[in-house]
Simulated assay, not measured.
Amino acid sequence: MNKVPLTVTGANKLREELDELKSVVRPRIIAAIAEAREHGDLKENAEYHAAREQQSFTEGRIAEIEAKLSNANIIDVTKMDANGKVIFGATVEIEDLDTEKVVTYQIVGEDEANIKEGRISVGSPIARALIGKEVEDVVTVKAPGGDVEYEILSIKYI
């Protein structure tokens, strides 16, 4: 299986979620199942079925996170020599040359992407256009509404 790029922050968030699921959520579900079993007939016990469904979802999420972490290529952008170029993990401030709107994005792995938090996937059209470019470079991004030109204002490696 291919290694998937992941920032240090993204890996830490996944580890925190995994720890929460294993140490808090899983024991709570086990207790709920045990309590529901004490109520008798399992065929008509809605609490039991709900707890088992929640257990199934939780175990699936644990397996998913463990698989992501085992296939992750964790990249610490602060320890890389980027020579002033946009690389994975970099935070880039860009300006739309038509609207003069300025936005800041961090280029992250697919699983970490969240546009509302300013994190875009390394596979997104904007990120692909920015990778390898430098401050003051102008990039053209193919968008559904037509090509959009952005100028790179700053690059940070945090």
Rank of each mutant, 00 (worst) to 15 (best):
G60L: 00
Y105L: 06
T104H: 05
G123L: 12
Y157G: 03
D147L: 15
D98Y: 11
K116G: 09
S70L: 08
L97R: 06
A113Y: 14
G60V: 10
I62M: 07
E64A: 12
G118P: 11
E38M: 08
K156Q: 09
F88I: 01
F88E: 00
G10C: 02
D111H: 07
S70A: 15
V108N: 06
M1S: 10
N114F: 05
H39A: 07
K142V: 14
A31H: 15
L21C: 12
A67K: 15
L21Q: 02
A67W: 03
P5C: 02
V102F: 02
E110R: 10
I30D: 07
E134Q: 13
N12Q: 13
A11N: 04
P125T: 01
V77H: 00
I115C: 08
V141F: 08
K156F: 10
A127Q: 04
V135W: 09
N73W: 01
S124H: 04
R37L: 04
G10S: 04
V138R: 12
V77W: 04
A113D: 08
V139Y: 03
G109V: 02
R28D: 10
V141P: 10
F88T: 02
Y105S: 12
I62H: 12
S124V: 02
H39P: 11
D137I: 09
A90I: 03
N83P: 02
A113G: 00
A51K: 04
K43H: 10
V24Y: 06
N12I: 09
I115N: 14
Q55W: 06
E17N: 06
V77A: 01
V139A: 02
V139E: 07
K43P: 07
L153H: 15
A67D: 13
E20W: 14
S124P: 11
A31K: 15
I30P: 03
A63R: 11
S154E: 12
A72Q: 04
A31T: 12
L18F: 05
A113I: 05
A82Q: 06
K68G: 06
N12P: 01
S56H: 09
A63C: 13
N73H: 06
A82S: 11
G84A: 06
E110P: 01
V77Y: 01
I131Q: 05
S154L: 06
V108F: 05
V102H: 02
E66C: 00
L153N: 13
A113T: 12
E151D: 08
R119C: 14
E151L: 03
K43I: 07
S121F: 00
A127D: 00
E44D: 12
D76S: 00
R37P: 00
I107R: 02
A82N: 01
L69Y: 02
A32Q: 15
V139W: 03
A63M: 05
I126D: 00
V92I: 12
R52M: 04
I152G: 13
E66T: 00
A113V: 08
L21N: 03
M1G: 12
L14M: 14
V122S: 00
S23F: 08
T7Q: 08
I74D: 11
G109L: 01
A50R: 14
L6D: 08
R119L: 14
E93T: 14
G109S: 13
E93Q: 09
A11D: 09
V4I: 15
A32F: 05
V103P: 03
I75Y: 03
